[in-house]
Design a protein around this nucleic acid. Sequence first.
DNA 1: TCCTTATTGCAAATGTTTCGCAACTGCATT
DNA 2: AATGCAGTTGCGAAACATTTGCAATAAGGA
Lengths: 149, 149
Amino acid sequence: MTGIAQRVAGFEGQLKDAGLRMTQQRRLILRVLAEADDHPDAKGIFTRAFALDPTLSLSTVYRTMKVLETQGAIERHAFEDGVSRYEHADQEHHDHLIDIESGEVIEFSSDAIEELQRRIAAELGYELVRHRLELYGRKKRPGVRGKKG
Amino acid sequence: MTGIAQRVAGFEGQLKDAGLRMTQQRRLILRVLAEADDHPDAKGIFTRAFALDPTLSLSTVYRTMKVLETQGAIERHAFEDGVSRYEHADQEHHDHLIDIESGEVIEFSSDAIEELQRRIAAELGYELVRHRLELYGRKKRPGVRGKKG
DNA sequence: TCCTTATTGCAAATGTTTCGCAACTGCATT
DNA sequence: AATGCAGTTGCGAAACATTTGCAATAAGGA
């Protein structure tokens, strides 16, 4: 029910409209991205794709990510570790919570926080264009309640 | 009223307590940082400091920033452009709004947003350790009201 | 099938930050 | 004031992630 094939086909049309070509490499990278449910970096994408087609190069991954980002097909994030991580952009906006122990990335969204940000920007005389919000936290142990032990 | 000299002296004691030394270079960099009211990157700090002492090296700036960060004397941020930017940490916590046209960085703080973040993390089963919040916005023209023209 | 041109792989170049190492310098102690 | 041990520095080279020049290749419309 993931619709990977459709998604890839969708991108194909999108690329065509922009005068770009749907190459084997792009198809491959698109497939890897569609199958990913995490936030891989360029090397991670390369590794996965390379396993399916060892003629692929890392440069092409970078170039493709740039094209896809321009097309709005993916989103790029840079968390604390500094490297660019990617995710497909077919879901609604969300922010990220990063488990500082495992590195796991959890997605969340909050209308309240979006609204609050907009208001804060407005109070400073700005129109909010975009934002970056990352929460870094530690998993609470199940038995522990709010305060004290 | 800035108290740069006192601040530098304060760091001196702090360093001493950690078994570190107050060198000419550190004094210089500290002074540059204290005088900065923006968020310079390593090269920017180096440039300003180099003007006062051309024997300083960029490596030393990087090393010093690491020491100071460990000591909690400064904070490091990485905005969208990827490079590390620094600011002295003698003020209370705040987040940043970046003017996407001028690159200017405006500081702000909001208890409401802090609290909201804590609550969101808690709802996901996490204890919030730290966060990164950057707003990217465009300056509103003075005459424009809330909605429409 | 042919042609134009976008795209690729490769290696070299970037830009930022780190590191090895020998020379140097705080600074606590004589 | 002189001494000695470590912490520090400057320099160049290395480590990284990412970008780019270029000649070869391959989409995909004619």
